[in-house]
Amino acid sequence: MATSPISRRRPRRRTGPGRILAWVALAVLLLVTLYPFVWMLRTAFTGNREIFNGDYSLIPADPTLVNFSRVLGHATPEESIAAGGSGAEVDFWLYLRNSVVFTVMIVIGQVGFSATAAYAFARLRFRGRDTLFAVFLAGLMVPPIFTVLPNFALVRDLGWLDTFPGLLAPYLLMTPFAIFFLRQFFLGIPPEIEAAATIDGAGKFTVFWRIILPMSTAPLSTLAVITAVFAWNEYLWPQLVGKDEGVRLLNVALGVFAQSSPTSSPDWAGLMAAATLQVIPVLLLLIVFGRRLVNSIGFTGIK
């Protein structure tokens, strides 16, 4: 007996008070989250003298691109002062290059070293493995601020202040979260796959490189995105050890730019224009890989 199209329709969900309240709470949370970003854009497209003129609408009355021109180095100091700036300059492309190098190196180092360590904890059998893994996990309970002073003393004694090795030293290797995240995934891979490769003559490194890594693109890409966002937004450590302009990161440069006019109010329009440009790479990264990040963040194995 054929089923009528009407009977195949899914039952409609009733819109109850709880569902309406949930949507209202979500809308309020979204508004609170996006409002600072919208106001940053509004300030970036507003002249410095028009920011505090009493017009607090979200769309500037007279939008301008002069702030972006100043940040990108296309305006002279005289033009910057005429636009309401302090005349301070930001070598945006140099600092952007430094931030990109810093982020890419940390992503490559952390993903690579964490993957090998996680595979060792998941598959290799050696004395003290579980104890060592517990010690690594205990690192999750140590606030990062506690390690800043010892790391700074070590980098200073090594002569790595104001160098890329000094910037990268605390982040380049593995982290407890990354090891735990990848280990949980590796534990879900059926051991029979590795046993079959071993019978065919593959060694541990070949199994890891040719079989495990290609099967782990989802968690590896998720870890890479999380690490990239963290590295791009890092401020405290680069501000301590990377004050030289040759290695100064974009985040640190924005802080210096905000303090460039101590006798007057900060150049808010120029600062917000630079912050808008600084946020674009991370925004594009999340737009491209956001769905994969959401789908993979709770993924711990292969079914």
Rank of each mutant, 00 (worst) to 15 (best):
A275N: 14
V229M: 02
T116P: 02
G159T: 00
T76Y: 08
P5G: 12
L172Q: 09
L132F: 15
W160D: 00
R156M: 03
V279P: 00
T276M: 13
G242P: 01
R248V: 10
S80P: 08
F136G: 07
R123F: 09
P170H: 02
I297L: 15
W237G: 00
E89T: 13
K303T: 14
V71D: 03
Q278L: 13
W160H: 00
E234K: 01
V279S: 05
Q278F: 14
S261N: 14
A275F: 06
W160T: 00
N53Q: 12
L173E: 06
A258L: 15
L254A: 04
P143D: 12
P170K: 02
F257P: 00
N67R: 05
F177I: 10
V148C: 01
T76V: 11
R125W: 04
P191M: 08
L284H: 10
I212W: 01
P219I: 01
R14Y: 12
P165E: 00
I179D: 08
G139D: 12
A195Q: 14
I280Q: 07
G246L: 03
G85D: 10
A273L: 02
Q278W: 12
A25L: 11
P170Q: 01
D130I: 10
V225R: 01
L124S: 09
F152W: 07
I287Y: 07
A258N: 14
P143V: 06
A44C: 13
G54L: 04
D62C: 11
A25C: 12
L182T: 09
V155T: 03
I211G: 00
Y235W: 10
L220A: 11
D244Q: 10
V24I: 15
I145M: 14
V135Q: 08
G47C: 11
P219Q: 04
T198E: 15
P144T: 09
A118T: 03
V24W: 13
A118S: 07
V28Q: 04
V252W: 00
F208E: 08
R19M: 11
L96S: 05
G255I: 13
T300D: 15
E89P: 10
L173Y: 09
T64H: 08
G87K: 10
F289N: 08
T206P: 13
M40P: 12
P219C: 03
G18K: 07
G54Y: 06
L65I: 12
L173N: 14
K243A: 08
I199P: 10
G203L: 10
R19G: 12
V104W: 05
F181H: 13
V282W: 03
S86E: 05
T3E: 15
M174V: 11
T33F: 06
F45V: 09
T198S: 04
G166F: 00
L29R: 14
P214K: 07
P77T: 06
F133K: 02
L26H: 09
N251W: 01
V32W: 06
F136D: 05
L271F: 06
G246Y: 01
F185Q: 11
A273M: 03
A25P: 09
R14F: 12
I212H: 08
S57H: 07
I199W: 07
L21K: 09
T263R: 10
R129L: 07
G242D: 05
V71C: 12
G47T: 14
I189R: 02
P5W: 11
A273R: 01
A224E: 08
I193Y: 09
P170G: 00
V155Q: 04
L271C: 07
Y35L: 08
V247P: 02
L240T: 10
W232P: 00
N295K: 05
T33P: 06
P63F: 08
I106H: 01
S99P: 04
